[in-house]
Design a protein around this nucleic acid. Sequence first.
DNA 1: ATATACGTGCAATAAAGTTGCATTTATGTA
DNA 2: TACATAAATGCAACTTTATTGCACGTATAT
Lengths: 139, 139
Amino acid sequence: MENVAHLRNILESHSLRITDCRKNVLQFFLNRESALSQSDLENAFTQYDRVTLYRTLNSFLASGIIHKIPNSRGVATYGLCRDTCSPNHHDDNHIHFKCNHCGEIQCLDDQLIPEVTMPKGYLMETVNMIVDGVCAKCS
Amino acid sequence: MENVAHLRNILESHSLRITDCRKNVLQFFLNRESALSQSDLENAFTQYDRVTLYRTLNSFLASGIIHKIPNSRGVATYGLCRDTCSPNHHDDNHIHFKCNHCGEIQCLDDQLIPEVTMPKGYLMETVNMIVDGVCAKCS
DNA sequence: ATATACGTGCAATAAAGTTGCATTTATGTA
DNA sequence: TACATAAATGCAACTTTATTGCACGTATAT
């Protein structure tokens, strides 16, 4: 359970207005260790319109509160950014884990993506790494 | 240009019937160095129904001719598998590159994904790595 | 040559993502 | 505290992508 001041603080520091929807969604992210999709939010917050949740996710994404996690299913999933992330500089160089059993996607904050080199002429900007398998809860 | 015997050979060795659609789509993949989405195929092959192309991709995917490439946009993209792939054992441990300029997704067949270790309790099955940036053609 | 299992096209639907607009609300300023 | 305003929300509508069922056509084994 996060206290409200903390939630306000996070939103404020990312230049976002404090609204019920944002506070609730943010709390939901903070209480979860797994990544969330829009439909997860729709199920959890029937009091808010789909579009509102869609735009809430977008505002979190643009302000650097959450990051998008690439995946093979055609559904966008989002994970909380670390404290050290900012809108302009993301610090999400950790591995993502997708459990093939429970379906959850987790940020493995302590497993950093190893350095890699690109062929000549390629300019590297962002690196994502996704491991599929069975998570600790399911194994 | 691939000769027809080669195309037949690939389809046959993956237990797929030889059809015009499959031959053409396979050739299209072989002639391209970049990954393809369903809509790419729809644009290239107006003579085939969307659903046919959809199922062609699915059959290629299931038989191990192509592999799905995770991405942040909500559009499935597919790349050719190496010769060493089979339906049961994929050998696509290469890095994928997404160019933020031209939008192309490429398989960097020679850039192998480095080994990583998982936290205790986690079972690793598949690893994907996607680098975003600017490709050699655009830089 | 033929049977049949598989592939294709068409129609329809589901699911996810997105936009415009009218109304409501958060926030800075008086 | 009241107010002006920029931003957030809800609703409706729409686009794109993904998916299924069914009838018909074709590749393949016998």
